[in-house]
């Protein structure tokens, strides 16, 4: 089965890296993954989206058209990308955002991603890693080893401990009931 994931936010929040890490973890876990991104000319501040497609089989079309999962870290990206979603799509948002009309709140997982990165991990720039920890916990995608391998290949040497903490704090944001409700299988 093809599983389409979209990561969105504002440039500089690291949503592209989050989607790369999920794809990298998938490869480490022996899955097929294709990652791509689109962006305007702004490296910082503009709206930005990245996409990862996961499957157990060869993936041909590389772009996401109806995401099964959406991460939105800004109101603007949430309002825009919540309009096109697959049935039963999971939408993970920062809990500071307002759920737009027409989006079923039962689909939405609102978590204090930015606050956790800032206050508990101690660095706002780890918000994307916090999000990756929460995504993996909520959807039940990869084992811990594959996830850490995915992160390790994309962070500077010497920042491992900080990033493991961000992953753990992200995972801790998702309750067991939520994890049971949102878990997705690629079969």
């Amino acid at each position: 089965m093809r599983y389409e994931m979209r990561f969105s936010g504002s440039g500089g929040q690291g949503v592209i890296l989050a989607s790369v890490i999920v794809a990298e973890a998938a490869v480490a876990a022996g899955l097929e993954a294709v990652q791509s991104q689109s962006y305007g000319p702004e490296a910082r501040g503009g709206m930005c989206k990245a996409e990862t497609v996961l499957s157990r089989e060869q993936i041909w079309f590389s772009k996401v058209t109806k995401p099964d999962f959406l991460l939105a870290l800004t109101q603007q990206s949430l309002d825009k990308y919540a309009q096109v979603l697959a049935d039963r799509a999971v939408v993970m948002i920062d809990d500071g955002l307002t759920v737009p009309q027409g989006l079923d709140k039962k689909q939405v997982l609102a978590l204090p991603i930015l606050a956790t990165a800032r206050d508990k991990v101690g660095k706002l720039m780890t918000a994307n890693i916090v999000a990756v920890g929460a995504v993996n916990r909520a959807l039940g995608l990869f084992d811990e080893q594959a996830l850490r391998e995915g992160v390790r290949r994309h962070i500077p040497a010497g920042t491992e401990e900080l990033n493991w903490k961000a992953l753990d704090e992200g995972a801790a944001l998702v309750t067991e009931q939520q994890a049971a409700a949102f878990a997705r299988s690629l079969d």
Binding site: A33, V34, Q35, S36, Q37, S62, K63
Partner: peptide, 9 residues
């Protein structure tokens, strides 16, 4: 751009 910016295993 499709292939240039695409990542895959």
């Amino acid at each position: 751009e499709i292939v240039g910016h695409m990542r895959e295993g």
